[in-house]
Amino acid sequence: MKLNLKIWRQAGPNAKGQMVDYKIDGVESDMSFLEMLDLLNEKLISKGDEPIAFDHDCREGICGMCSLYINGEAHGPDKLTTTCQLHMRRFNDGDTITIEPWRANAFPVIKDLIVDRSALDRIQQAGGYISVNTSGRTVDANNIPIPKKNADMAFDAATCIGCGACVATCKNASAMLFVSAKVAQFALLPQGRVEAAKRVQDMIAVMDAEGFGSCTNTGACEVECPKGISLTNIAILNKEFLLAQVK
């Protein structure tokens, strides 16, 4: 199939970027979206042009590296799908596809379609862990009874891959869904309760300091999240934050 692509090109963090039009032929419907970009890059390289920089790693939908705002949606039109798992059969011959980087001041563009998502790492480092002494007499985790419902909810929260689609799609560039998943996965389990109050406060403090917007509960993050992280986690985050004030 033939496609018209409009792709954001930006030489570096401080360079002025712009949308550039590309025509590409020979796209197969069973190619993934990133393979289509690989094909375009091969053609650009063979012409001596600079290839388009974009993030990718596992290409199996689990690492959280791929991003891209495709035709006005984070990770493109498919639900519960990362860009690497989006396939060209979703598009038609002759389609025009716009491809942009995640847009948020907290995610500055490094080059072309690659943005710096280390702000999410810094939020995680502020409290997205449990402090466990692993030397000596550790207790087997399975010895602690946990209600099935809590275990399931914690596991669902833990499936967040930190890709940043929630930030990219939120009209306020808020990172609440990401932070809430990281808070909830521990808040729901006994091991996480010990540091729960400090965790939620520290992570929110860093979230605000990194320049993310505030949550207005539009729910767009939940719809666009490739892992289906639920807004329930944001309600848990809010509750945890309020409870932390009275402790």
Binding site: N105, G213, S214, A220, V223
Partner: peptide, 21 residues
């Protein structure tokens, strides 16, 4: 006003209606 300031560069193509009311 504060939330609007968090995304200085807007999307060229944005389709928010698929995800929120």
């Amino acid at each position: 006003w504060n939330n609007r300031s968090k995304r200085s560069v807007k999307y060229v193509n944005n389709n928010p209606k698929v995800a929120s009311s």
